[in-house]
Design a binder for these strands. Sequence first.
DNA 1: TTAATAAAAGACTTTTTTGTCCTTTATTAG
DNA 2: CTAATAAAGGACAAAAAAGTCTTTTATTAA
Lengths: 150, 150
Amino acid sequence: MPQTQPMFSRTCEYAIRAMIFLAQRSAQGGRTGIKEIAEHIGSPEAFIAKILQGLGRQGLVRSAKGPTGGFYLEAGDGKTSLADVVKAIDGESLFSGCGLGLRECSETHPCPLHHEFKKIRRDIYQLLEKTKLGSFNEKTAEQLVFLKSR
Amino acid sequence: MPQTQPMFSRTCEYAIRAMIFLAQRSAQGGRTGIKEIAEHIGSPEAFIAKILQGLGRQGLVRSAKGPTGGFYLEAGDGKTSLADVVKAIDGESLFSGCGLGLRECSETHPCPLHHEFKKIRRDIYQLLEKTKLGSFNEKTAEQLVFLKSR
DNA sequence: TTAATAAAAGACTTTTTTGTCCTTTATTAG
DNA sequence: CTAATAAAGGACAAAAAAGTCTTTTATTAA
């Protein structure tokens, strides 16, 4: 038995943690290198590099090569929501997929749990949608440090 | 990028579908063989066999070998909730784990999303907890058939 | 008591996810 | 222009999840 299915994939957890960290960092301006990001969020360095590259291609984060390079967000990126990040990595199925994995499940042809799950999916989406990266700018150093485990 | 993280693991989806199907079947009494279960929920035969064996060891389903054998639920098993099934397979992390995967995250040492996720986790748990297998007894044949895809 | 049936058990394979490493490309400072 | 720096890219490796197959065990009905 698997015995631990979290809400988000590991990849997505790292992505959210990195984006929150970058949001805080970018508030003071300046870029942050992969090594420092990995240290602060407690992830493998090469792995979060890959993840941020992907998010970069999708325009959710910016980066610059060379000395003084690194990852960063710009002013307008504060409006990016956690829902955007989750969608970019885990896709939409948490928000709109059938809880039982039935492809044909829909409003008009609902699985036995369809209507029951509707509210939950909407709540999850709305929470992630309303939580913008910009809102992490003014958080304390203590909360900042707590993007890390292990 | 992975691009599709559902709420439950595939194993758990099959398990829930099989248990709902068995709940309906067992209402009329009688046992159901693996082949028939697999057909009705649209899962690989050997795989759902494995899953049900696991659930059997944990006492969530009953089985009998030999001719006339198969899987079934008894009267009292109608009180089993979907939360019980999910816990048996995906564990508790959907209900109580940190959304960002931080092991030290807790009420007194919360991650930046801890309090926001609290309500959602509770809603998911309560929904699954209040949904008992027994409630699927009287559902129509149409809904029954719709435990299957692919 | 034997033949047939069906689940239990466990080894095995495939696929996906997670994670690493090495080379290339771009940028900057001297 | 050249060294050094840091991300991009892609091939590769390890681990976990999903899925298969074969043998064993239990049960039933003839």
